[in-house]
Amino acid sequence: MKRTNLRVFQAILLTITFTFLFSACGDSASIKKEDITTYKIRIPGTEESYEFLYLTDTHMIVPGDKENQEISDYEKQRLPVFTMEDVPSPFLQFPQWIQYANEQDFDGLLLGGDIIDYPSASNLEYLKTCLDDLKIPYIYNIGNHDWTYPWEYMTEKGKSEYLPLFNSYMENNTSIHTKEYEDFTIVAVNNSSNQITPDALTRYKEILAEKKPVILMLHVPLYTEAVLHKAAAVWKGGVVLGGGIHGGIYPDTVSTEFITLTTAKDSPVELVLAGHVHFALKSDIQGEKNIPQIIGDAGYKGKATIIQISG
């Protein structure tokens, strides 16, 4: 078979497979209410009530990837990491959450990063198939695994070839993008490299200057004593941005300014959502203004978070 025809055949087979899998597993009846944590957040001046479904760190991997041997070998290595007893595999869970989000008619689906485990063609195609079935708005923030492989981790090649694959999910701006609501703005900022980019900081300043309440989405949490203490126990190292003197990641000049602006006395930021550390926690980021930070538990465990916003 000619190479072109083979690729066409593989694409058709992949589409049929995804369609079958999606229809077979997109049943929200298997979602356990006890696996959903609900937080109620008050934002002064909010006139309406809002409810969002927050998913992070699902680490979806489509099994049987034949893109190349290196990716196939990596798949075999990574699949057991996210396989848990009595919990469906992440790529089977995700359509269930999509169906659940549609049924509950949330005001939006918030995706906190590491939704796929690496940017293979199969994983990306499956992600698109799932999100195409979503009937509510969503905002996608990127994690360190979404766009990297270990052999191209945060490299220039990764930034030029893999990061742009997420443009269509992030309003063609993988550094920072927004979702507007009547009473607030959700701002997704890419800190998957453990720092904030200068471009993101520039746009962030413009958004904050509007003085409209902000819900800030990050992948890597900002430092609080509680999250660093727990993360250090789980990960044996600092995996939060800030608090370098305490064992966290030292922020560079740009990230330091970003954190200072976020917690300034006149900051419109009312809530920070994060993931990355694979456990659930709510604690305050300390500054001139204390900001509640909610960390969502890992989706591959079957966990999700509901955020309820009111005035």
Rank of each mutant, 00 (worst) to 15 (best):
F82V: 11
Y100T: 03
Q99P: 15
D57H: 12
F106D: 00
F52R: 04
E75C: 11
I71Q: 02
P88V: 00
E75Y: 09
I71N: 03
G108C: 03
K66T: 12
S72R: 14
F106R: 01
D57A: 06
H59A: 05
D35L: 09
E85A: 13
P90F: 02
D35H: 13
I36F: 08
F52S: 05
K66A: 11
G64M: 02
E51Y: 05
Q104T: 09
Q93R: 13
D107K: 07
G108D: 01
N68T: 05
P80G: 01
Q69C: 11
A101F: 08
V62A: 08
S89T: 12
T56H: 09
Q99S: 14
V87N: 07
D105A: 14
F94Y: 07
E48N: 15
E103C: 08
M60Q: 07
D35K: 15
L53N: 08
P63K: 03
Q69V: 13
T56D: 02
L109D: 01
R42W: 10
P63H: 02
Y54R: 03
P90Y: 02
Q77A: 10
I71E: 00
S89G: 14
S72M: 04
E47P: 15
Q96P: 13
E70C: 08
L55A: 07
E75Q: 13
S30T: 15
G64C: 06
D107R: 06
D57E: 01
F52N: 03
E48P: 14
P95R: 02
M60T: 12
F91T: 06
T37I: 11
D107N: 12
T83C: 06
Y100C: 07
D73F: 06
S72A: 12
Q93Y: 06
E47K: 15
E103K: 14
K33M: 09
L53D: 01
Q104Y: 06
D107T: 04
R78F: 07
K66Q: 09
E34R: 15
I36R: 09
Y50M: 01
D57N: 13
I61L: 05
S49W: 04
L53H: 08
L110K: 11
I71A: 02
P95A: 01
K33E: 10
Y54K: 05
Y74L: 07
D65M: 13
T38C: 12
S49F: 08
D73S: 12
P90L: 00
F52A: 04
K33G: 12
Q104I: 04
A29T: 15
